[in-house]
């Protein structure tokens, strides 16, 4: 389990993994938001213990005014949201009733289920949606389709596979999703990022 790092800011954004950490770091910088600190809770199975440990930190109740949690929907958004609610409850934190609607309390708590709080998917899905109109995506679709025809089976994780294929077309082809965000490969002005930006502005 990853441990929370020392609290330095009153707004805390809790995200799933290093890719998400660097992604959100880049997005917050782009948005000019410098009063939020990012915490990486590791894998989704660790969220409950992470939140317990986080809420136990001596400075947590005193310093933190707002917590935002972002996790992937995977195959079912309601289940993903429910699992976050359960984790919040066990940590004794306020529990929002809906994604992207803050629960008031000390601290205020809000949850964003990627890609957009309604469809199944993940952070990769959101990033891919932002480059849907990029010329490279036609090649990415053809490539992935070819792989599936050749193997006779569906790709293990289509969103991740497409993301890696898309990034392979960039000037630096070996970057991961989060690094790609830092390199400016995701178009922040894309409308698909608006719900997420709203979530971050409302932290």
């Amino acid at each position: 389990m990853l441990n929370p790092v020392e609290i330095t800011k009153r707004k805390q954004l809790v995200v799933e993994g290093r890719d998400a950490y660097f992604f959100f770091q880049a997005l917050l910088t782009h948005m000019g938001i410098d009063d939020a600190q990012i915490q990486d809770f590791g894998g989704i199975s660790e969220l409950g213990n992470f939140l317990r440990s986080f809420s136990f930190m001596p400075s947590f109740r005193r310093e933190v005014q707002s917590v935002g949690i972002a996790r992937d929907a995977e195959s079912h958004t309601p289940s993903a949201f429910q699992s976050v609610q359960t984790a919040l409850g066990k940590a004794g934190l306020p529990i929002p009733k809906s994604p992207n609607v803050a629960a008031q309390g000390d601290p205020r708590v809000s949850v964003f289920i990627l890609p957009d709080c309604s469809r199944p998917g993940m952070l990769e899905s959101l990033c891919l949606a932002s480059v849907e109109s990029d010329n490279a995506m036609e090649c990415v679709e053809q490539f992935c389709g070819c792989l599936e025809r050749m193997s006779g089976a569906a790709l293990g994780n289509p969103a991740k596979a497409r993301t890696h294929a898309f990034l392979a077309s960039r000037p630096k082809p070996d970057l991961l999703l989060g690094q790609a965000a830092q390199a400016g490969y995701w178009p922040w002005d894309s409308l698909v990022f608006e719900p997420l930006k709203r979530f971050l502005r409302d932290l």
Partner: peptide, 22 residues
């Protein structure tokens, strides 16, 4: 002390276990 008022927050066995490990 939260917003000028002293409050008590109680921690259960599981939370303490995780926090102490951390």
């Amino acid at each position: 002390s939260i917003k000028g008022e002293v409050k008590a927050i109680s921690y259960d066995r599981e939370t303490l276990g995780v926090a102490m490990d951390a």
